[in-house]
Design a protein around this nucleic acid. Structure first.
Lengths: 331, 331
DNA sequence: ATCTGGCGAGAGAGCGCTCTCTCACATCCC
DNA sequence: GGGATGTGAGAGAGCGCTCTCTCGCCAGAT
């Protein structure tokens, strides 16, 4: 025996299929007693609308693709940012009864798959979490006639509304904190320069150093813990007298702290460390990490709102969320 | 202008809709030259099948729900297990051209939503990642006539095929390692006892202690870092002379290490620590953590295979994957 | 030359729903 | 009281696809 159809509900309630449909879709032009009869039939039969049939005629699917474009499986699993953003976006979408279709786009092959799927009209909109500048996906998706929003500013200039946090301003605040606490030789471990967050945070660092007449000392990592440790060792080799380091993200900062410890430097006495992201682990490092907090969950929620707004012809204006300096013991 | 339909493809190729459908679905009974003509029409028009229409008639959706039932948003974001499992499952499903619909079930309200959605026939199968014993979802879903598999053994006895790792055996190996290295007073920080992983790992601990004639010293945490620190302090209060601790997961172990450091205990000299999970962070603790590795990604992949097998009437036999002791410096 | 068998292609029903169009009937105003 | 107006319910088309049934055609057997 199969699931009850609208036809069955209508028959049981003694009305036409059209009227049953009106009740299901909360249309107003139904007399109260008929509405009740239909509702009773729905409850008794345990009727649940067939979404395929509905989509077929409405041309809507009520599902949204969440495309995570990140080649490094390592980073995806390790960086809590992804899960936080995914969770928050899911939560917000569920609240408005939309499904989340999760798509991981790591290889060119899966890129093609995602493109096919999206342009196949399977989803009403796309949320894109893409981190790498070389990523062809943002431009590819923007060409499809599906509403697309991005988590973070796309690296290539492309007409996709996005929500981002103030990376430049945050980095400036972090470095300024180091300057104001009297540090003289402030290095940085920058994130990958093909990522907006990597670029912008380095820009912020440079802005402040320029204004405060200090020399910049730069090493580049790839946002992983290990790369932070490697970059830190490199910086110590380049300038053994450095007394502060601004790190492009917390994960690398954790690696940097480890490298500093191994090199016998005390934090913050010998070297002050400022991270970026305020991940959960930042509270538990030795010493706890001074860092820049940006509201990942809020950013994801704002992205959802932006997309939902797009459906109703709303604003395409980017949203920039502020960052906040969290002072702990490392600087 | 709307997307091309199969009708349009058929017209362009000069064949019937039925034949065009045969080509799209790779049926064999089509003459090569006709197949080519249809294929050309498909390419030229950029035809992509409408999945709603297809689902309507085939009663399949080619999408799978990935239901994550975890009330604590904190744990979800923080524990890399979730993202690793999600990533791996996604990857495996994409390989067989199935969509992943991600559903977070945190509140009773969202439970109802998930149940409605699943029983609405929107998905062909369900993968359930449920951690808490009190969770009503496993039994609820098992009653629906949708194939369901579980990541981890469900806490309540319910007829759902599952894939799990050998928690008892792993814990035994970990504690045995402590016994064999001559530790006398081996405490444990157990995970929450309403979770299978929490229970089974405690069972493993007890098994070995019983056989080796040592007293058990137990504190209970909830798998978060903070709870690990709290439990560790409690254990040190209960038995200041303890010389080893087996911790139910790495996240709590990280907290325990921090608490030990604050209490002035050296690891492993004064107290040996063994964790469980081998998360990425275990390599970077001070000192690096001895722990039990279980293949999360493989477990998720096995779960996908189990579900796909179910579609073809395959085995419902649970799959248990082995754990492996990874000896680092903490024990 | 006729018959049979098999295979490739078309016709057409129907999946479950929405939505427009139409109609029946009640209400209102002049 | 009669026509104009409004309101609630039904009829039926059609969304795009799959799949069964049917038919035409050709090869091989008789």
């Amino acid at each position: 025996m199969r699931r009850p159809t609208l036809e069955a509900v209508a028959a049981r309630a003694g009305v036409s299929r059209a009227t049953a449909s009106r009740v299901v879709n909360n249309q107003t032009t139904v007399a109260p007693h008929i509405r009740d009869a239909v509702q009773r039939a729905i409850d008794e039969l345990g009727y649940i609308p067939n979404s395929a049939a509905r989509s077929l005629v409405t041309q809507r699917t009520d599902s949204i693709a969440l495309v995570v474009s990140e080649p490094g499986t390592r980073v995806f699993s390790e960086d809590p940012m992804f899960s936080t953003a995914i969770r928050s976006a899911s939560y917000e979408l569920e609240a408005v009864n939309k499904q989340v279709v999760l798509m991981l786009a790591s290889s060119p092959k899966s890129h093609a798959r995602v493109e096919r799927y999206i342009s196949g009209g399977h989803v009403d909109g796309v949320m894109l979490i893409s981190m790498h500048g070389a990523d062809p996906l943002p431009s590819a998706l923007s060409r499809l006639r599906v509403p697309v929003v991005s988590y973070g500013r796309p690296a290539v200039p492309v007409d996709i509304p996005f929500v981002d946090n103030d990376n430049v301003g945050g980095a400036e605040a972090g470095v300024r904190h180091l300057v104001e606490s009297g540090r003289r030789r402030i290095a940085t471990i920058a994130g990958p320069q093909d990522m907006i967050a990597g670029q912008d945070r380095l820009t912020g660092y440079r802005n402040v150093l320029r204004d405060s007449d200090r020399r910049s000392i730069v090493a580049v990592g790839d946002f992983t813990r290990e790369s932070g440790a490697i970059a830190m060792r490199q910086l110590l080799g380049d300038d053994p007298a450095l007394d502060a380091v601004f790190v492009g993200n917390d994960l690398m900062a954790v690696g940097a702290l480890q490298a500093l410890r191994q090199a016998g430097r005390r934090v913050p006495d010998d070297v002050a460390v400022v991270g970026f992201d305020d991940i959960e682990a930042a509270k538990y490092t030795e010493p706890p990490l001074t860092t820049l907090r940006h509201p990942i969950a809020e950013q994801a929620a704002a992205m959802v709102r932006l997309l939902l707004g797009l459906f109703e012809g709303g604003s395409r204006e980017p949203v920039i969320l502020p960052t906040e300096l969290v002072v702990r013991e490392s600087a």
